[in-house]
Design a protein around this nucleic acid. Sequence first.
DNA 1: ACCTGTCAAGTCTGG
DNA 2: CCAGACTTGACAGGT
Length: 323
Amino acid sequence: MLLRFGFVAMSVLLENCSPSRAVTFKAYSSLRERDPGAALDKVRQTARENLLNTLRLIRHSAANNVRVYRFSSKIIPLATHPELSGWDYIGELKETLGEIGQFVRDRGMRVSFHPDHYTLINTPREEVLEASIRDFAHHCRLLEAMGLDARAKLVTHVGGGYGDREKSLQQFLQNWERLPRLITDRITLENDDRTFTARDVLYLAEKLGLPVVLDLHHHLCHRDGGSSLEEITPRFLNTWRDTELSPKIHTSSPRGEKDRRSHHDYVDPDHLYPFLKLAREYGQDLDVMVEAKKKDQAMFRLVKDLCGFPGIKKIDEANLEFS
DNA sequence: ACCTGTCAAGTCTGG
DNA sequence: CCAGACTTGACAGGT
């Protein structure tokens, strides 16, 4: 089986290449008072730089055989802020967006977004749901402007527990009906590290026909009594059956004994290998997203470290064969 | 050049 | 019921 490795948003190997430079609303507002024309220009300029850096990042990826990449969700500053609702960033940036998409298609890369934790499907608050729909739609429009079909996914969590997990799972199903096709076609669900376990996520995903991204570190931090990787793995793999995509996992290692939930600089291959052995029984190719502080450097190191393990054969610096 | 407090957004905890 | 923590990269304002 083929194992393809990828990384999240930024590189520690490329200098001055952030795809996430921000303009805070505070900075935008104070600049607008002093010089009304300059404020939006600053946001525009930052968005353009973030896209150009994204282009550098995917070129760097491709040059090093990396085929799995997650875009930064902060790529367009203040994109969905109500006070900038008239700003047509897609229209302004469509050329660069198109260039990114074309590169991704030409190189057969798999890309995704992970909208951040303010964006919640299962919220009981109407205004939060509306803001979340706007945010998901924003990410979908970017992918569309890149010319990428529904294989380019949005990864998200179930949401909050709101004091009653069972009720909150049902709220997810209820709110799901409110999401447009544009969004639901791209959603994949990930287990989190404090509220909804892999088993919870599989319950929703199997009901709604969604693919599941299995986060091994979250599973270690938070799993229900009886749920083992042996139980979860075949169900997880199955959720990808009709998607033309390989099942995807997230991998990371705990920062320390005290803060087990935070990410370490690097990934310990011993934290990943047992799962790979388990998944090998099913003969499925896998995409592995490395979530570590040292980003692409951590990913390259993990691939190198795994080369010493039984059954693993190196294809190149970002891809392995496991038999 | 480096350090510290702050930042759009939501939820949870604990006082 | 409200303030602060949570998490993260990066800004802004200080030295």
